[in-house]
Design a protein around this nucleic acid. Structure first.
Length: 537
DNA sequence: AATGCACGCCAC
DNA sequence: AAACGTGGCGTGCATT
């Protein structure tokens, strides 16, 4: 198992940074109290034998403050409890007091400067928090597993953020020049790359608006209306409905403008940095549990939305390869497992669940299978999805009943739970009128999706924890990216195939860990490549 | 000048 | 003319 999934830890070891992380206080946590406090210089933390004791669980308040110190000291971190992350789960799941006292900097940080002995208070507080969490979790095996997984997620996020994503700036520059044209000499928003400027001129020409700023939706809409195009917005789907010489260059301009602002030169300048070993990496700050469903977010760099167009700039370093792995149709598979829907699980037996639906005669085209399944997961009611849904409901009544029940529960303002027990928040108030009914249905779509997306996120955590363990002894291999259902490991060329196999095996392990003997496959598509764009999907 | 919101588009 | 879930973020633009 990739993380502690059950049973009481024989030894809980609390760790608290003091003196701004120059030293660390270590204590045994038991029955809500801290005992046998030791204080160690940061470089010598690993010398406390309790941190390496078999089965020991290391407990902290905030991974961001302590995990870097532990990693630098060579502590392995196999069983962990992140009190901050787990608290957030238990507040919703168990009504644990919403208390943010450990969000504050620990008082010992300041007071430690003036006393040789550590303040016992933070470690006692940690012990008390741990005891409260253990009581709240009780014998709920799902919550216990979720707490362990989320806590390991805190470690993974620190490790991933410290690694960064290998990034080749000259390749990035070349991709931008190819798409946008030469970079203008002056910075500033007025200076547009050559192709963008040419498209802007075409738009102005076609609309007879010589001073038009194509970045201003208001100006663009007004100019379009003057040209006789009755548009409510300037979004692409609406523009496409109209026939006019300005439309094509405008849509192309907006496409390039997005690339330029989101993943252009300024973005690379801001987020790419050269580390101590001279490697260029994108600095990505992961936020575990940053999304209500339990998915991760990132802060600042927009790293979860790196445009496909520039993914070739994410490239393996000399002697290395990227092992790019993504879980195939993760959410429908999670749904099949939640619902114990053997028929849907059977359709997913191969590597392509959507094709499985076609092969079993449920729908006649793969594209329809996908649209219909996503409609079921998101609550789609129109178009192609609506046409296919009845057939899915007939073929997979158990799975469809689960998402329908989640939607109805949300409409009734009830909470729903993921497989391991993450709980949806309570909805805002809505009135008892037509507008309120709309809001209720919208909340139902949220709870419908929450169950599936949240369970998929739990599987992904377990998967990634397994990958972490599997590559631990592969010298030079490191997780460098995580995107909901996709991971990238950079590994030495001659060990990449072995890593790819380990990543696939970790997926199967994660499925068994969460869903036991229920026969659901979690196939993972892996590619060993030099750059991210070569991993086709 | 700083702040907050709306728009629009990218990702899964 | 949106719809069908979760987000981040840059830009324009109105408000303070």
């Amino acid at each position: 198992m990739a993380f502690d999934a059950g049973g009481a830890a024989p030894l809980d070891v609390g760790v608290v940074p003091i003196d701004r992380g120059e030293r660390v206080a270590v204590a045994t946590l038991s029955a809500g109290r801290a005992g046998d406090v030791a204080v160690l210089e940061r470089a010598r933390i690993g010398l406390d034998p309790r941190l390496e004791a078999p089965g020991a669980r290391i407990v902290w308040q905030d991974a961001r403050a302590i995990v870097p110190l532990l990693l630098d000291a060579g502590v392995r971190l196999e069983r962990v409890r992140d009190v901050r992350l787990v608290h957030r789960i238990l507040v919703d799941a168990r009504g644990l007091e919403r208390e943010e006292r450990w969000a504050q900097p620990l008082r010992a940080e300041a007071e430690g400067l003036f006393s040789l002995a550590p303040e016992p208070e933070p470690l006692d507080a940690l012990a008390a928090q741990l005891a409260a969490q253990e009581a709240a979790i009780g014998d709920d095996a799902g919550l216990r597993m979720l707490a362990a997984a989320e806590s390991m997620g805190g470690v993974l996020a620190v490790e991933l953020s410290r690694q960064g994503l290998p990034f080749d700036r000259s390749r990035h520059d070349a991709l931008l020049v190819e798409a946008l044209g030469e970079r203008p000499p002056g910075a500033g928003p007025a200076a547009r790359p050559r192709r963008m400027e040419a498209l802007a001129a075409q738009v102005r020409d076609a609309l007879g608006a010589p001073t038009l700023n194509p970045d201003s939706p208001q100006e663009v809409r007004a100019a379009l209306r003057r040209a006789g195009l009755d548009v409510a917005s300037t979004s692409r789907w609406e523009l496409r409905e109209h026939e006019h010489p300005a439309i094509a260059p405008l849509i192309e301009y907006k496409h390039l403008a997005r690339l330029h602002t989101a993943n252009g030169w300024a973005w690379a300048q801001r987020w790419a940095r050269v580390d101590a070993r001279g490697r260029c990496r994108l600095a990505i700050e992961y936020v575990p549990g940053g999304v209500v469903t339990g998915r991760w977010a990132t802060e600042g760099s927009g790293a979860m939305q790196i445009a496909r167009q520039i993914r070739a700039a994410v490239a393996a370093e000399p002697g290395m390869r990227l092992v790019v792995a993504d879980a195939a149709q993760l959410e429908p598979r999670a749904l099949a497992a939640i619902a114990r829907d053997e028929a849907l699980a059977d359709a997913g037996r191969g590597t392509d669940l959507y094709q499985g639906l076609v092969d079993r005669g449920v729908v006649d085209r793969r594209e329809l299978a996908k649209v219909g399944m996503l409609g079921a997961l998101y609550g789609g009611t129109t178009g192609q999805a609506a046409l296919v849904l009845p057939r899915l409901a007939r073929a997979y009544p158990r799975a469809m009943a689960v998402v329908e029940a989640a939607a109805r529960a949300g409409e009734r303002r009830e909470r729903v739970r993921t497989w391991l027990g993450r709980t949806s928040p309570l909805p805002p108030r809505w009135r008892d009128d037509e507008r309120g009914a709309q809001q209720a249905r919208a909340w139902g779509r949220f709870t419908r999706n929450f169950v599936v997306q949240g369970t998929a996120a739990e599987w992904a955590l377990a998967w990634m924890a397994g990958v972490r363990r599997a590559i631990r002894d592969v010298d030079g291999a490191a997780l460098v990216c995580f995107l909901h259902d996709e991971v990238i490991v950079q590994a030495p060329e001659d060990r990449a195939a072995e890593v790819a196999e380990a990543v696939r095996a970790a997926a199967a392990d994660a499925g068994r860990l969460l869903f036991g003997r229920f026969p659901i496959d979690f196939p993972v598509q892996t590619a060993v490549v030099e750059d991210w764009s070569q991993a086709k999907d």
